[in-house]
Amino acid sequence: MRTITIKPAAITHNLNQVKALAPKSNVLAMVKANAYGHGVAAVLPALQQADGIGVATLREALEARQLGWDKTIGLIEGAFTIDEWQQAIEHDISCVIHHAPQLAWALEQIPAADSATRVVWIKYNTGMNRLGFNEQTLVPAAKSLHDAGYQLILTTHFANADDRSHPLNAMQIQRFNDMLSILRETISHDIKGSLCNSAGIVNFPEHHHDWVRPGIMLYGSAPVIDQSAHELNLQPAMEFGAQIIALQTVSAGDAIGYGSRWTAEQDTKTALVSIGYGDGYPRVVNEDAYVTVIDTNNESYRCAVIGRVAMDMIVIDVSAVPGSSALNSKVILWGDAPHVDEVAVHAGTISYELLCRLSLRPQRL
């Protein structure tokens, strides 16, 4: 059996950690990419104490509305067409506006005064150099939106917030704070600010402003490079599991799997686990990769992943597991141990990618 077990209580716990770190800020909880692979339907009930949720596409926003989410929804890339802008108005979705076409749609079709779409997140490019108005174009765009009756939230996105010491962070913070001051002085004192993602929430507590936008930390992964999830008191919200389906002893000198990348130095007891890259476990992991085996006596063992990961199975070294209890034992690919952050390091990637690329094959619990 292949399973993905979601723990809503962990998500609520992590949300409470965000609120403790940013007690004066509203929280826009990011649930884009199917809640970072966790499943929007499973996650939304755990986020009821958030002030809103953030999504990347209109389809995601509409799904959240269909699931009964009646608070703020922020469409963080905004509408892609004027038809999407109209749908945003219809479903009370608040949009980011980051370039001229979106500005034009907002000025051409102004929502009713009580519409949530009257709140717009105007994006300022402070150094990420993806989306957003520059210093010259943002002020007139903000003024035209305010004059048309919109409530404004100035927002931007860090490029290096996970690394507190990166010099661009200070520059982005300064640019953002300067622009927010200009907007409040020249247009309206009521303009709000939103600067911090998960890493910013942890690393820059003095710059939380009116809204924070936690993402990966809600799901129990560390957003910064110098502190672990455990050190940040974050709980993993997902356990990725499988089971041992066969046992064999590989003789010294024999190789295992495609490419014969691993060769036994001595007779080695191995196990086949019913998981592979077809389920979302990374195909390439280094020699430090391991899983946790929980045998039929409920004892836990750390077991190395050996050989190349295949589509449907992996091989692990179960020399330490008593022979009579290994078959059909539960295998944890990530969860409490190993943590998904560890697996990401072994795979040369980040936890975001591992969580988001899980396939539909594992049973979700």
Rank of each mutant, 00 (worst) to 15 (best):
E206N: 13
I216T: 03
H209P: 00
L232V: 10
G220W: 07
T155K: 13
L218Y: 01
D190H: 12
D178M: 03
S188G: 13
S181N: 11
D147H: 06
S181D: 10
Q172D: 05
P205Y: 04
L183G: 07
S194P: 02
M171C: 09
H157C: 02
S188F: 10
N233I: 04
S194F: 03
D178C: 07
F204A: 06
D210E: 14
T156G: 07
P214L: 01
V212S: 00
L145S: 08
H146P: 03
M179F: 03
N197D: 13
H146W: 15
L138A: 05
I225V: 15
S221D: 04
I191F: 11
L218Q: 03
V224Q: 04
P214N: 05
Y219K: 06
G200K: 02
Q136I: 12
L234Y: 05
I182D: 10
F133T: 06
M171G: 10
G200A: 11
N177H: 11
H157E: 03
E135W: 04
V212I: 12
V224D: 07
P214F: 04
R175F: 07
S194L: 11
L232C: 08
V139E: 09
A148M: 10
R164D: 01
G220V: 11
P167G: 08
I187L: 09
N169T: 06
E239A: 12
V202P: 08
P223W: 04
N134G: 13
S181Q: 14
E185A: 13
H157R: 04
F158K: 00
Q235N: 12
N160M: 10
S144M: 15
M179C: 09
W211Y: 14
A159N: 12
C196A: 15
I182N: 07
V139T: 13
R184M: 09
G215R: 05
N203Q: 10
K192Y: 04
P140K: 08
E239S: 12
Q227I: 01
I216H: 04
D178I: 13
A148F: 07
C196N: 11
Q235I: 13
D178A: 15
Y150Q: 00
